[in-house]
Design a protein around this nucleic acid. Structure first.
Lengths: 196, 196
DNA sequence: GCACGATACGGAACACGGTTCCGTTTTACA
DNA sequence: TGTAAAACGGAACCGTGTTCCGTATCGTGC
């Protein structure tokens, strides 16, 4: 359940040694390139960095999005797992929600272009969108419902819409010093508070 | 000041008749295609619809973004002009702000893909971003300042960040029935209210 | 009415992105 | 060591925005 990050294809066993090595090389190269050039760096650049042909990338990761998912899987998982933990350790559900949102926003803002990719026209990054949703939506729902149950926030907001809103607010947060996504998300969360 | 929508190049005078005719044809075709296929429709489709070559598009509109600007210029202007009017006719500055934001959001959500284009990686749609900002930022600033002066909202939010936030929230609002941008923007504006 | 220069046109060609395909190389097993 | 399966590399393909240049059209001076 925590295999070191292949997104598709058979698990570690049943792969040739060189294939496994290349997969890891690719993940490392992709991570580096994503940091230096952003998540939307050309596939060819990643292949070059890893010293392999583009074909090799596509054999391991059927699509760009799958590569991105594989690179960030651990962090997404960490974010998902932080939800229940925060709920247990925070004074109120609303506090837990706030902290969890901070975690998520920090994650998105830190990776250049990730937020943008996350809602890119379904054509290319659809799988990415889907993965984030699968993993994080249940957690977010739980947090929202807990905060709603405790009467701290209004209960009429879809977790899906909420998450998309947060993701959207993070778009372009890097590469624009005048735009502080964290602040706007905080405002959004503030707007969620029950009138009384 | 209200010339029917050429974005660049000399004004109506000093153009050849066929050039002027083609420009109008292009604006009409683009408007149609934007409605049916979204703002990110291929340039070639627009050229085909207008019955001209792509070269003709680029002679009239140096870049895709300029064409988009030309098509929506009137509506952006209308939105800009509505600001002061609303401020004058609304019971409070905050009410005016709310109505103006509604106007802006409706505009963005209505045009498929406009919001996405608006914050697309500066490479391609930079001019579009710039035009919207030039035109609307002053208006938005005025509204925010008025509402802040009347003590209805906090005064520490940059109008630029606010506008970008709204624009971002509108990304993908079409093409996803589960995502209601208007609602999230309303939440954001609610979060702007002064604690007391 | 006609010729000719300026203006505008069309669309092939280019740059650049993701993705596919297939001949070649490497691996693993007998 | 021989061989079949697995994996590799990168040229080729498709769909974008944009540029370029030979050709057609306009409009003006005669």
């Amino acid at each position: 359940m925590n295999d070191s990050g292949q997104s598709a294809g058979s698990s570690a066993r049943s792969q040739r040694k060189d294939a496994r090595r290349n997969q890891q090389t690719l993940l490392d190269a992709a991570a580096e390139v994503f940091v230096s050039s952003g998540v939307d760096a050309p596939v060819r650049d990643i292949a070059a960095k890893a010293g392999v042909g583009v074909g090799t990338i596509y054999r391991h990761f059927p699509t760009r999005a799958d590569l991105v998912i594989a690179v960030y899987r651990h962090q997404v998982d960490a974010c998902a797992e932080a939800g229940p933990a925060l709920l247990a350790s925070s004074p109120t559900p609303h506090a837990a929600l706030g902290r969890w949102v901070d975690l998520f926003v920090d994650f998105l803002v830190t990776k250049h272009g990730l937020a943008t990719a996350l809602q890119g026209d379904s054509t290319c990054f659809g799988p990415l969108h889907t993965y984030f949703l699968d993993r994080l939506l249940p957690v977010c729902t739980e947090l929202l419902e807990a905060a709603a149950a405790s009467g701290e926030i209004r209960s009429d907001l879809d977790a899906y819409a909420f998450m998309r809103g947060i993701g959207n607010l993070c778009v372009g947060a890097d590469s624009d010093p005048r735009y502080d996504a964290r602040r706007l998300v905080a405002l959004l969360v503030a707007g969620l508070r029950q009138p009384q």
